[in-house]
Nucleic acid binder design. Structure first.
Lengths: 195, 195
DNA sequence: CCCGTTATTTACCGTAACAGGAAAAAGTCG
DNA sequence: CGACTTTTTCCTGTTACGGTAAATAACGGG
């Protein structure tokens, strides 16, 4: 029940609707935790069934009525119980790493373009983190505990993206240096398969 | 089908039994990809059904007979097709980050001990990576493509662990500096719940 | 001799997560 | 009119994760 806890964590900031949560999971917390709206709504039903959150229906004209979810005291204690348990160190689980593990049995050209795409991707994210950091924490310090958490989060995100971006760059360089040493002939049998 | 591809990637090195694969997924590739033996065996059956791998039974006395799986040509091309597709940048998905996001609504003491455990954990892994690096690549260079992949892998792993370890350290310092500013009263209602 | 471990595979159970496609409803904007 | 936003819900899958457990037979300790 990790997604559920992530939702509870979001709701500590303020009550939200599923729609808002979906958007939150697309930006702020979504930088390191992905979930689409269907997943969110399903999880919200479960949390409501367990009494961890309470929905208040707000009648709207024009738009569908919305359900604003608030943490119940039970939800708060549940979150705190979960937070008091030791965290499980996650695996990296990046496709790229699996491919690198079998680098001599695959085609380098696609890997190269993939690395370039990833380089751009991680650089973008890094810039994004830095931008938010500069905006929210120009001093680089946090005043209260909530801010501290977010500052640390952003810093970790920034560093992580930087590190992966650097890695992509170095991998590309190393691949260029290794040029021509591949033993694999390029694929051409896949063109007719699966459209 | 990511686990399946990871298995195929392992089998490019040499034919292996499910048992060996399970151990591999516990050490080398398992540093960034977790899977228990049940998962491996289940995935192996699927791969065999699709014709990507072939099992050769080796009769043993004393021990149960083992099934040595070899990549078929179809398996090789399947792996190469998969490797030619763009990789999906994974999310970080660390419980710790979710907790930091709600740092003002949870208890800091458990987070602190958790951070200390994690610090030790990531330091251990970092040392492990460095040890392997020094042993396998004392020069810091790779001679062929296979070695290059593994060198890059190890380097990424080492840096990642180092980064996370540093992060834990800083987070602990920051929490100490923030000492006493927590607004949350410690939990004591959980003692009777769930054992 | 019982017990635990190693080696090796297989069988269940369940839940959680991920991926996608679809449909309501009623407003706004071009 | 059509496209888009807002908001929720339902569907069908697959993949992954987690635990429990059973075969089988050797080997080693107390």
């Amino acid at each position: 029940m990790a997604l559920g806890d992530a939702i509870l964590a979001c709701l500590t900031e303020r009550p939200m609707t599923g729609y808002e949560l979906a958007k939150t999971f697309d930006s702020s917390i979504g930088f390191f935790w992905k979930a689409d709206h269907q997943q969110i709504y399903r999880e919200l039903s479960k949390l409501r069934d367990r009494g961890y959150i309470q929905g208040r229906e707000v009648v709207q004209s024009g738009k569908p009525n919305k359900l604003i979810y608030t943490l119940t005291p039970e939800g708060r204690t549940a979150l705190r119980h979960w937070s008091a348990r030791p965290s499980t160190p996650p695996s990296i689980k990046d496709d790229l790493l699996v491919r690198l593990h079998a680098l001599d049995s695959i085609d380098i050209e696609p890997i190269r373009t993939d690395l370039m795409d990833r380089l751009e991707h991680h650089r973008d994210r890094h810039e994004n983190y830095e931008r938010i950091l500069k905006k929210r924490f120009p001093e680089g310090t946090a005043s209260d505990v909530l801010d501290l958490g977010n500052l640390l989060l952003l810093r970790l995100g920034a560093r992580h993206e930087q590190m992966v971006a650097d890695f992509c760059e170095e991998a590309l360089e190393a691949l260029s240096a290794m040029n021509g040493k591949s033993t694999v002939v390029p694929l051409d049998d896949g063109k007719r398969e699966k459209g």
